[in-house]
Structures are given as structure tokens and as C-alpha cells.
Design a protein around this nucleic acid. Sequence first.
DNA 1: GAACAATTTAAACAAACGTTTAATTTAAAC
DNA 2: GTTTAAATTAAACGTTTGTTTAAATTGTTC
Lengths: 207, 207
Amino acid sequence: MTEFNDKQIEILNAAEKLFAEEGFDGASIRTIAKLANVNIAMISYYFGSKEKLLEALIIHRTSTMKVQLENISREDLSPADKVERLIDLYISRINANKCMYQIMHFELSTKKRILNMESFMTIKKANSEIFKRVIEDGQQKGAFKAGINIDMIPVTILGTIVHFRTNALFFEQTLGLTTEEAFESYITNELTLHIKQTIKALLANEN
Amino acid sequence: MTEFNDKQIEILNAAEKLFAEEGFDGASIRTIAKLANVNIAMISYYFGSKEKLLEALIIHRTSTMKVQLENISREDLSPADKVERLIDLYISRINANKCMYQIMHFELSTKKRILNMESFMTIKKANSEIFKRVIEDGQQKGAFKAGINIDMIPVTILGTIVHFRTNALFFEQTLGLTTEEAFESYITNELTLHIKQTIKALLANEN
DNA sequence: GAACAATTTAAACAAACGTTTAATTTAAAC
DNA sequence: GTTTAAATTAAACGTTTGTTTAAATTGTTC
């Protein structure tokens, strides 16, 4: 879409970090400018306002989250393997965009800004539909059970990951994940395994 | 614990609503005071500062969230029924304290305030341990499968509910839950059923 | 009802906020 | 090299922020 120069990219990166860490209201134009090594006036100069900066950031990041999931439904895999690959992709995407997810989940939950969240919603919708297609295919082939709420499966997958991340402090204590690596390692191994086990069990046809 | 008079309660209620809707930084002392129908100075007078108001609110609300879950592990039910009851209690507790959960999940995720979240963590820990006990009991009785990640089961339950609530706007659109009642009804019926189905499937022993 | 403490108020406080200005520097075009 | 546009700056703008003050009101005690 719109091309950004180096200065603008630096501002967007700084904004992403600080919006995620301190919230939109908590992060100030001055701290963002300082982190990006630019004059405070540059933000208004390039983006117009703080709110428009957030909007630009969301559109910029979501546009790069291309629908790579789409390809999976075309791959020649068993329905069960497709679901596993989808879960892997979900998790790796959140890991790669954890700041953005943090920001958008807060923005979605707040009633303050009636910001344009359509770009984020569109991605969510597309992903949900891919999931739906794969599962319905599996049901027709007799691999998956009927009578399950397909709409809520992405909710459980995403919810589990997001909830684990937001409560990082809690799990650092209770699971002893003191270092950053231990925490991330737990996500890619134990947590991912748990999600796969859970979804598999829900879908499994005992016949 | 500490007793609050009517004015203080009104301030706490107003603060809870506005902190949840607009975030801690987004809500101002003046809007809180206006909603509570008190002078702005009363907040400093009673609570000392905005930050201490949040702290008082958290301690006040979490102290009322007594460990009612504790009783369930003593009830004479099958392990499967106990799990169902635990899920019901989880959901009804979040429904009853949705504002507080909203606030605390944001506060937990932000790196800004190093606020005392111990009261919230203690509750989380207690609940997790009750869950653990019930499931381990079910495993010993042969009702539940072995080789599952017990720690992550509350994460999946809570994550699914919280994620559904935070993305309310999205599901209003995609599921057509236009009214407040339709949304809440979906949680108590479809979503609850989905969670129970999921956890049951994960725990079920096929032997 | 006088004396005292607790409550409530309007006003003011300094600090931080997002944004704009007007001047200056850098870059591009001819 | 002059001209024009773009980028960058420091300073100031008017608000809003959380908090405090000092005066006024209310409640309590004897």
C-alpha cells in the first residue's frame, strides 16, 4: 500500500513497542519520538495525529499479515494434519506479532476509540472461514465428529495463547519460567502440544 | 477488610466501570468523580491517589471473590460432574466480575505499573490447584486420561471466555449477536457448552 | 450551643499532554 | 547557483492531567 520511509518505519516500530507495553493512552508522543530518535513534531508531520499513527500502524502491520493460511486448505494433507498445521501457523503468527495482538485486543475491548478495526476483523474472519472449511471437509470424510461448534474452535486456540501471554507474570511464578527463553520455549513446546491435543480430542470421531 | 462508606463505594463503582471501559490512563479522575457524583478532591481525600484507588478497587473486589470453588472438591460427585461444575463456576464468576477481569488482564499485560497484583494471583493459584486436585483424582479413578497438561486446562477455559468477551465486536458481526441479551445468552449456552465439550473430550479416557 | 473533627467545595497548582508554529536546514530541480 | 520543495528543529500553544489548598459546610461531642 502506502510506502513508508526509514524515519516513518522507525516511528512505527517505536509506537508498536510502547503502545503494546503501556497502552495507547499510557504511551506519549514524546516517549515514542525519543525511542524513534526523531523530533516530536515529526509524528504529526508524517502521520497527522497520535490516533492516526495508531491507525497507520494497524493497517501497516495487518497488511503484512497476508493470508498464508489460505494455502493450507489446498495442500494434500489429511484433515487432522491440516488442523495441526493451522494451529502451528496461528501460534507462529501470534509469536511474530505479539505486540500488535496486544495492542489490538486492548483497542477492541475499550469502548473509547471507535477506530477502524476493519482490517483486523477481515483477517480474523478469513482465518475463521479457512478453519471452517477444513473442519467441514474432515466431517464429510468421517474423520471429524459432528455436532461441534466450529466457530468457537479458533476462539479456544487464540484464547489459550493470548491468555497465556497476558498472564506471563503468573506463569513465570507458578511454572518457574524465569527466563525469556524458558517462557517462549514453553509456548512453542508444551502449550502448542496442549492446544493440539485439545482440538484433536474435540474433533476426534470415536467410531 | 477495610470498611467503605457509601461515597467510597460509589467512587469504587464508577472507577470500576470507567477503568474497564477506557483503561486506567484513559479514565480521568474528573470523569470518575462526575459519574460517582462527588467532588474531584474526594478521591484524593479518601484514597490518596488515582493509583491507590485502583489498588483499593482490586483488593476490594478480589476479597469478595471468595474461594467458593473450594466446596466443589468436597461434593460427592463423579470427577466428570465436578469438572462441569467447576467450568460453570468459572464462567459465572467472570460474568459477575467482567469489569474487574477486564481491568486486571490489562494491568497484568502492561509493563507500566508494577502494582500489587498478588491478591489476583493468589485467587488464580487457588483455582488452578483445585482444578489440579479434581483432575488428578479423576485420573486415579480411571475416568480421565493420563498424559495431559493439567496446568493448561484453566488457561484454555479462561482464555476461551476472555477472548470471546474481548472480541465482542467481532462476534456481534459474524454471529449476528446484535443485542446485549443475545450476546450474554450465547455465552451461557453455546460457549459454555463448547468449553465443556472441549474439556470433556480432552479428559475422556477411551479405554 | 460552643468546640472540635470530619466532610465537602471551588479554585488553583505545576506538570504533562497532543499539536502547531515559524524558523532553519537539507534535498531536488532546473 | 538559484529556486523551490521537503525535512527537521526548538519553542510555544492551549488543554487536560492528577493533586493540593484553604475556605466553607456538616456532623459529633460534651
